[in-house]
Nucleic acid binder design. Structure first.
Lengths: 149, 149
DNA sequence: AAACAAAACTTGATTCATTCCAAAAGAGTG
DNA sequence: CACTCTTTTGGAATGAATCAAGTTTTGTTT
């Protein structure tokens, strides 16, 4: 439903453009993709879209709260369109695969710090590090692409 | 105590070199610094150390478990010498300041995912996002350098 | 104490994600 | 339909991090 994306964009006072619709569609169909993949997916529909446009669109959509930017340590930025529910992620140290994990507590910040050092905390981001089922069955990888090395 | 660092290095079968001692000393005195700052701190003592050496040393020390690499979303890599206690961090969205937060639960993984999707999870990393006391008193910043924008 | 092999460091270049810039195109408004 | 502001294009630049070749240093052995 493309018109659905149009509604979303108008709701946050953003102009409706082909690149933006294509990015939203790409993220709906492929959660947790990096920027390069978004560019490739967008160009499958709109071959003339520049990489700069995708960067700009992702920034605009992130600012508007329509998409969420996630960036596990050691990896490039990834984006997802599931927003507003403060869910978390499991990340595979071996292949970088990401899966969603519902927040056990609910709304942000779902955790409270034992000592916040005077910071006013509005969000607790949780990243579960581990090994995905596929990598667990394979031989132990020799060159982990992401995460602490 | 430089000889203390020497003991640490030998304990993990790493050779004792000037660059490594300087990096360990820098991290002891300045927690949560990025690589450029480490380079500057090291060169205050050892002016001839190359940036590549610092990168190599940080990698070696991280692999050996003597230092921990942390990388909040949107920021460059930072390092700290407090290891082994699975503590977490509060990060200021405005200035990037980082403070330690003790883990309420204890050993890793301190949290368990509600649904781990078959991943075998060995660590739960928590980043508390907020505003530090300094930035809270200042005027609301117009250009946050780190974190979700 | 001298010599050797492996590990670590220096120098210089390169990669890659991301950003900056000026000009052209497109979206929404009256 | 014309106007204004926003967005996109195309190309170049930035900056953190990595790679590669050659030299120095460390820890060990004789």
């Amino acid at each position: 439903m493309t018109s659905d994306f149009e509604t979303q964009l108008r709701a946050v006072s953003l102009r409706v453009t082909r690149p933006r619709l294509a990015v939203l569609a790409a993220l709906r169909d492929h959660p947790h993709v990096d920027t390069d993949t978004v560019i490739a997916l967008v160009r499958a529909d709109q071959p003339t879209v520049s990489h700069q446009a995708v960067y700009d669109v992702l920034r605009a959509l992130t600012d508007a709260g329509l998409v969420r930017r996630i960036q596990p340590a050691g990896a490039t930025a990834r984006y997802e369109s599931r927003v507003g529910d403060n869910h978390h992620h499991v990340v595979c140290r071996s292949c970088g695969a990401i899966a969603d994990v519902d927040c056990a507590v609910g709304s942000a910040p779902c955790l409270t710090a034992s000592d916040d050092h005077g910071f006013s905390v509005d969000e607790a981001e949780v990243v579960y590090w581990g090994t995905c089922p596929d990598c667990a069955t394979d031989a132990p990888p020799s060159d982990p692409p992401v995460g602490r090395k």
